[in-house]
Nucleic acid binder design. Structure first.
Length: 745
RNA sequence: GGGCGUUUAGCUCAGUGGCAGAGCGCUAUCUUCACACGAUAUAGGUCGUUGGUUCAAUUCCAACAACGCCCACCA
């Protein structure tokens, strides 16, 4: 007997407990798993095993709606394939998220008035582990509330011992194959986090400033005027550059300018990177404090003059030493003014990079860091998509993927953070390898690479000086270096190792480059196979007003609140209902209400059906037996007489719906599938057919039962909880989770 | 600066070379024995702007505009 009301708050947790023991993939059924069912149309030209990778959420806090959408859509596929008799394997996990987690833990400490430096490195890392234990579990619980069905016995964490080992091995393999080098070069440095950042971890914001036009004296030729926003970096200038085609400066090229204040001779060079139409068309080159200048300086073999340190203080700057760079700017301007070397000052708004995580303005300073050469890897990444080893869906994301690879820089993979996986690099204590690094010459690289060894374990004897106890570097990996290996580093056991490559991964588009692309070339580099066949990019969830959803802006919506209010089924319905292949999704709560109402509708229709059947049973038990054959009756030559016009109509409509839903699930058009199912159930089934069953019933009652039960099976992949509950109310022995996907009637 | 996307009912969005659709909201009626989280009926749109192709354009093409996102970073 079916209850009159469905109480999701009570029932959802109860149902999840029923599923839980069955989510563990015990044994891979040898041939049955991959490619067994030919009717499953894989994307053209692909054969596949049904392995899904969860994009491991950061342990920084709780989940957001993007996670809910992403994992709901994978769950739909997983449930679908499971009902199709496959053994889908969905591998869950969480990410240690180096800089992000370090920052939230620091924030927590700041509330108590302490910094990580007060605590010390070791204690701080302990705090991070405590954080991980707490929030890692919270996140997993949140997923369970959403009703998703990964194999929870295989949760991986990017700082698991085995995982870290894979990361170290990958570094060593890259290093041995010549893909990794160490270099002193300007990097984006966050003065607050005290670490370097990659280009992808910056946030650009406009800021009001001044553009100073400064006269640099040229030997025997008067002046050349350069425009700059940062006069203090004059101290680090090693050249003035103009565009080779710029006729105004034709006679200045290869001449010598006198650097003001410093009174040093610097060359005037020609480089195509200089834009003639901006400023004066002449640019001061400060290789140590500008990434673009550094690139120019490399082409012209210029020296690196480091004049600002990690704290924004002046160094190697004589009388200016120790000054904050802004104070230094004032002094320099005073001096230039005294010498009448300032032509003019204009107001100027320009984009300043900030730390993506803590929003502090970035300083560009030279630092010794580790880099991965991207040339070859970019080719691998490009080829994987071009050769269709991996499909990016929707197709439109291929273009940004390729564009990014065109002008790719080498990847800085070291971070000077505390929370993370440290590099397997051991330093000799008797050779610093750091002398005279400002001078770029043939000995430069030798010296740079003369004082360390790359090794998984500590060398017993220092191979360099034969004498010291080597010390492991305290540098850690960029989190993305580690998560780039996610597709195979999570496979610990021999059985798990067979699950490479996976079938599918899904993410929002903001990590297409950070994660998706890097995972693709990493997989191909280390395992010779692309890590998955399908990278599905789902829309980014915005507020209803089209604003970014973010906790700090107060525009975020907690999925748990919605589950509390409407239930997980309704949340899943609402998210999928709104999902299109557009790049954004403006989230509106009303669609969740629609989901909630729909669940009630289905609940009541099923209840009506079961009451009808009960009546039949009680009154005329013989009819029921007769109707058992009804499914077959629809075949051409069978007793069509027992079917009414309405019966035939609803069967036809059901079959069309089934076909459409299945087709759309397989092309990731989940919203279309769900909307079709919705209107079939509500309009065709409830409004028309079911109404026609009332009164003097000429319809075949078995048809109603069949259609409702088969609809529940289809609905189950979208809204698993209440459909499962209904199923058990219908006295079914087996969980709906394991029922077979319906076939046409 | 380069690229991408969006623009259809009050709101969030489907959709189509030939009477414009859904959900929510609104209005009216109905507590009829599955469901008021319901039923029935109604109102609401020159389908961003301007041109072009076509017998016919909301749909195809071009330009423009607004909004959003990504990439670059010009000192």
């Amino acid at each position: 007997m079916i209850e009159t009301r469905y109480d999701f708050k009570q029932i959802e947790p109860k149902i999840y407990k029923k599923w839980l023991p069955h989510l563990k993939i015990k044994k891979q059924k040898s041939k049955q798993n991959a490619e067994s069912d030919k009717s499953l149309s894989a994307p053209k030209g692909l054969s596949f095993g049904i392995v899904f990778l969860m994009a491991p959420p950061n342990i920084t806090g709780s989940l957001h709606l993007g996670h809910s959408l992403e994992n709901t859509l994978i769950d739909i596929l997983v449930r679908y394939y499971r009902m199709k008799g496959q053994t889908p394997v969905w591998l869950p996990g969480i990410d240690h998220a180096g800089i992000a987690t370090q920052n939230v833990v620091e924030k927590e400490l700041r509330k108590q008035g302490i910094s990580r430096f007060d605590l010390g490195r070791e204690k701080f890392i302990e705090k991070c582990w405590e954080w991980k234990e707490k929030y890692g579990n919270i996140i997993l619980d949140q997923f369970k509330k959403l009703g998703i069905t990964p194999d929870w016995s295989r949760v991986k964490f990017t700082m698991d011992k085995k995982y870290v080992e894979s990361v170290e091995k990958a570094f060593i393999e890259y290093y041995d194959k010549g893909f990794i080098y160490r270099d002193l070069r300007p990097i984006n440095f966050c003065p607050r986090c005290k670490t370097g950042l990659s280009d992808l971890e910056l946030e650009w914001k406009p800021e009001k400033g001044k553009l100073y036009f400064i006269k640099y004296p040229v030997k025997n030729q008067g002046f050349i005027v350069v425009a700059t926003t940062r006069p203090e970096t004059i101290l680090g200038d090693t050249a003035v550059a103009v565009n080779p085609k710029d006729v105004r400066y034709k006679n200045f090229i290869r001449k010598t300018a006198i650097l003001p204040v410093v009174e040093k001779e610097i060359p005037i060079i020609a480089d195509i990177r200089i834009e003639p139409n901006f400023g004066t068309g002449a640019v001061k080159i400060t290789p140590a404090h500008s990434i673009v200048d550094y690139e120019i300086s490399k082409r012209h073999s210029l020296k690196l003059a480091n004049v600002i340190d990690e704290n924004g203080k002046m160094i190697n700057a004589n009388e200016f030493n120790g000054l904050n760079y802004l104070d230094c700017r004032e002094k320099i301007l005073e001096e230039l003014n005294a010498k009448n070397l300032i032509e003019k000052i204009e107001d100027y708004v320009h984009e300043i990079p900030h730390c993506d995580r803590c929003k502090t303005a970035i300083q560009v300073i030279p630092s010794l860091e580790w880099f991965v050469k991207m040339g070859e890897l970019a080719k691998i990444a490009k080829n994987a998509i071009q050769s269709k080893q991996t499909l990016i869906i929707p197709n439109k994301y291929k273009k940004p993927y390729f564009d990014w690879l065109k002008n790719i820089r080498d990847w800085c993979i070291s971070r000077k953070l505390w929370w993370g996986q440290s590099l397997p690099v051991w330093f000799c204590q008797n050779q610093t390898g750091r002398e005279n690094l400002e001078i770029r010459n043939s000995k430069f690289e030798k010296k740079l690479n003369a004082n360390f060894v790359v090794s998984l374990t500590k060398p017993k004897k220092c191979p360099l000086c034969k004498n010291c106890e080597m010390v492991r570097t305290d540098e850690v990996f960029d989190t993305w270096f580690s998560s780039a290996l996610w597709s195979f580093a999570t496979l610990y056991t021999p059985q798990e190792k067979k699950w490479y490559p996976a079938f599918m991964v899904s993410s929002a588009r903001d990590i297409l480059h950070l994660w998706i692309m890097r995972m693709i070339f990493s997989g191909l580099f280390f395992k010779d196979k692309a890590p998955y066949k399908v990278a599905f990019i789902h829309p980014t969830i915005q507020t209803k007003e089209g604003k970014r959803m973010s906790k700090s802006l107060g525009t975020g919506i907690d999925p748990l609140d919605l589950i509390e209010k409407y239930g997980a089924d309704a949340l899943r319905f609402g998210l999928i209902w709104q999902m299109s292949d557009k790049q954004d999704l403006r989230f509106d709560e009303m669609h969740i209400i629609t989901g909630k109402k729909f669940a009630t509708k289905v609940w009541n229709a099923t209840r009506f059906c079961s009451m009808q059947n009960l009546e039949i049973k009680n009154q005329t038990p013989k009819i029921e037996t007769e109707f058992r054959f009804s499914v077959k009756m629809t075949n051409k030559n069978s007793k069509l007489k027992t079917l009414s016009v309405a019966d035939k109509k609803i069967i036809k409509e059901f079959n069309a719906t089934l076909k459409f839903v299945e087709k759309n699930i397989l092309v990731y058009a989940f919203a279309q599938a769900l909307q079709t199912l919705y209107s079939f159930f509500w309009n065709d089934l409830c409004d028309n057919y079911l109404e026609s069953c009332k009164g003097e019933t000429k319809n075949n009652p078995k048809i109603l039962k069949d259609i409702i039960e088969n609809s529940l099976k289809m609905l189950n992949v979208f809204m698993p909880f209440f459909t499962e509950e209904l199923w058990s109310s219908l006295d079914k022995k087996q969980l709906l989770l394991f029922e077979k996907w319906p076939v046409a009637l």
